[in-house]
Design a protein around this nucleic acid. Structure first.
Lengths: 192, 192
DNA sequence: TGTACATCAGTGAACGCGCGTTCACTGATGTAC
DNA sequence: TGTACATCAGTGAACGCGCGTTCACTGATGTAC
């Protein structure tokens, strides 16, 4: 698994690297691969599952819903950015395969993102500040927030890890999220 | 070029399809490929250039900056969604290669998106409503808007073209953009 | 503590296949005079 | 209007290579009694 991540990170994408190259990178004979996975698809899906399983755990542990709204944006962005940096190879894999992967991989990633969006909408619903917003609109807002955070992680992964440019990226994302929540303050959910 | 787009659209991504498959799809012998392109990289870059050249033209012709702000969001979203649908194969290609393509392709796409963001920031600067926003902040806002529109097009490309689900996607994107501009109304650019 | 057996990860040879690229070629279309 | 030549897109044979997958194998580690 690690060999596959290294190859995808340093060149091309998952469909462009062969079983034999992964085995070579892992220092093992090609046939040894079959001791661990049915085929390359199974490996790819496992990598995606692992990424999101631990992401869900991190976000769950953070218990964001029980925090004061003030400062939540900055804290969440920093938590997330830190986690992305700590799992650079896994996230690079997911970002590349989100649109370029097999149908099964794309669906797996999409479903996980929908789960995150739902969880965020449920968390937001617990704040008094958002009591005037309908359920549907909370989902629309959560969707925008999740997309903004995804874009942030794509950018963090795009810059050299030793480069301190990350701070500028985080500041921009924070600004964008604060802008969104300013809009939410003025938002009125109209019944259809 | 069309054969390559068809293959990328119907399966996998550009790095996963071979020169021979493209030639076969085009009804031509593999060596005929070299009459038109140096190699596959050159073909990929040409497809990206074509996509953005005509997108820039469409957006330029629309002269959005000279329109009243009211109704601009809806009009822009509809214009863009229409264009994406009309160029489904090209956009599917770009979406897949934005992160999974070669370094040259990724950079080409990234640069084009930066150009679009700059153009939007310049357009926004012409509205009196945004005169209280700094240049930097206009870029941050444009960035958020562009990302939201990119996400919309990714979603339009993901649903079946005969399916009328597009309307729901467009409504959501419109809501998100209006939310952003509500935030802009309350935004105050602080000098550092 | 010792013995017998099962499980497991890795080995290495072999297969047929599709790949990118080379080369010399053909024949249709365009251009110069 | 007719002739000679250049340009161009496509052809088809051939090459060496890396690929995924099969198979029977080896030897280390774990388990039962």
């Amino acid at each position: 698994m690690h060999a596959a991540l290294e190859l995808v990170s340093s060149e091309a994408n998952f469909s462009a690297i062969s079983l034999r190259r992964i085995a070579r990178q892992a220092g093992v004979v090609p046939t040894a691969f079959y001791r661990h996975f049915e085929d390359l698809d199974a490996l790819g899906l496992t990598l995606i599952e692992d990424t999101f399983r631990s992401l869900r755990q991190i976000l769950g542990d953070a218990a964001l819903a029980s925090m004061p709204l003030k400062g939540l944006v900055r804290y969440s962005v920093e938590l997330f950015a830190h986690y992305v940096r700590d799992n650079r190879l896994l996230f690079q894999f997911v970002v590349k395969e989100r649109f370029a992967g097999t149908v099964a991989m794309r669906e797996a990633i999409h479903n996980e993102i929908v789960l995150l969006t739902n969880a965020l909408a449920a968390d937001l619903a617990r704040f008094d500040e958002f009591s005037h917003i309908s359920q549907d609109d909370l989902r629309v807002i959560s969707d925008l927030v999740v997309n903004t955070v995804i874009t942030l992680s794509e950018r963090i992964l795009d810059v050299d890890p030793d480069n301190a440019e990350d701070d500028a990226l985080m500041l921009r994302a924070e600004k964008q999220l604060r802008l969104i929540f300013m809009g939410v303050g003025r938002w009125e959910s109209r019944s259809a």
